[in-house]
Design a protein around this nucleic acid. Sequence first.
RNA 1: GUCCCAGUAGCUCAGUUGGAUAGAGCAACAGCCUUCUAAGCUGUAGGUCGCAGGUUCGAAUCCUGCCUGGGACACCA
Length: 558
Amino acid sequence: MSNVLAQTEDILKEEIAKAVVQAGLATEEELPEVILEKPKEKAHGDFATNIAMQLARIAKKAPRQIADDIVAHLDQAKASVASIEVAGPGFINFFMKNDFLGDLIPAILEAGEAYGRTDTGKGEKVQVEFVSVNPTGDLHLGHARGAAYGDVFCNVLDAAGYDVEREYYINDAGKQIDKLASSVEVRYLQALGHDAAMPEDGYRGEDVAAIGRELAEEHGEKWADADESERYAFFREYGLSHALEQIRKDLAEFRVHFDNWFSEQSLYNDGKVEAAVETLRNSGYVYEEDGATWFRSTEFGDDKDRVLIKQDGSYTYLTPDIAYHKDKLERGFNKIINVWGSDHHGYIARMQAAIQALGYPKDKLGVKIIQIVNLFEGGEKLRMSKRTGNAVALRDLMEEAGVDATRYFFVMRSNDTQFDFDLDLARSESNDNPVFYVQYAHARICTMLKQAEEKGFTAASDSFDANLLTAEKEVDLLKKLGEFPQTVADAAEKHAPHKVPQYVFDLASQLHSFYNAEKVLDPENPERTKARIALMKAVRTTLANGLGLIGITAPEKM
RNA sequence: GUCCCAGUAGCUCAGUUGGAUAGAGCAACAGCCUUCUAAGCUGUAGGUCGCAGGUUCGAAUCCUGCCUGGGACACCA
């Protein structure tokens, strides 16, 4: 178990609970959960608890009096507590014996790449569906944020002990594919010099035009006057597979991979769309009106009922989507999570209604909304890609800023605030750029360790004395290292992967600070040098693991 | 009109699910390289947490109302 800090906390919590009961302040049943927090102020100790305030009502005593009683009954030695203070309205501040930190470095070095992994998720099966862009063109800015968020979120879930599956839902059945087919057709004909007009709602992007040109080159006039339906089927298939191929390629380059690519068309082929409607009908949530078939979603809090089958007999967008979610739920996940763009938020209520109508609890489905991204360059907002005239593509970003910076930037902010992507900053090789700042910390350590080797310093992970690590900056570093597993678990539980870049940045900052204050390789003090080398190795491991979760490189040299 | 998200330092954002004197980075100002990478560090300054009520020992955080910005409100996908 490499989560030394959590162990220490658990023991302390237990001892506090015991003390409360022994002091006769509350029975075990009355006892609220003991909450330990990490105070912002160093002067308030390593941990603090507000248990005395919480007990005020139960024990019918003043919080400070309660706090004193608890302290009097606490087994300080067992809880590794060095000293205790009662402060403010009744906080109990614990100053820990730092010897618990001594176990940390060997634990980290032993765990290696696994440091930061916990079993908080208890192997629960979670499925995350993200990106799921219509295969009708390039991925662009907003999709990229969703891709980065989804991917890092999955990494974090995995590290926290969840059994994660990544899925991409391919909308390959609806009208948008018909539109793609005719758009490709027009571009193909135009590429051959024929007179063809793009339909009003066709895809006018450069990406589709490229497919048309490619086709013209490969096939020449072959399809120009082929049989209408045959020709249509061909363009449809060709456009679809090429768009999809492009998406896969871009995502792969962005280091995003899926376990499962799920085709909407397969739902039709397997009769699952009909089956879903029947299921809802049998449960009594379906009715006919005005020649259409409706889903009584208002039963579950939706604003209005929704049409499943239109007057003309075709399905609405919602219907296959319900079938899709039904299919996902039947695959046995404890939880399914959708990552959607902000323009889809209005869709949540009806989907959750569908989940309930299918007989599942509402919270079986989680929806994460990714807010809009604005791209800035030279202080100005870019609306269009300079290259293609379309919305800025993921590919442009990767070229301009690199994959590392792009991924880091997209996940460093909470998903539900709009994000200004500063292209100049992402590109800059300076300390303003948080990606470089963190990577530099890693590289710095690697250089130090290399020199340590060259100079003949060695440090096996178990042959150093952790008690020599007493400088303020190194104790801070140790404490920060200890937080990593919980930060990751926290990020998973709160669906907040942005906590990882935040953590890694803080750790890098403390490393730089330590580096400037203390010398690691010191021939005058070989024993302390050994201990510090071990500390540096632990920091390097933790930084690398954090960067790994974000999906970016940890360079050894910069 | 209804719903969702946001509103915290000049700018970009955190804020440990209600805790102590609200924190980082950038920008500003003042310093630190003969020494393991200055792509770094140290310090100063900077705040009516959108506004007004309420809940309680205690509110940036929870509730109500309002203001501002963004988005969504199809028998489109």
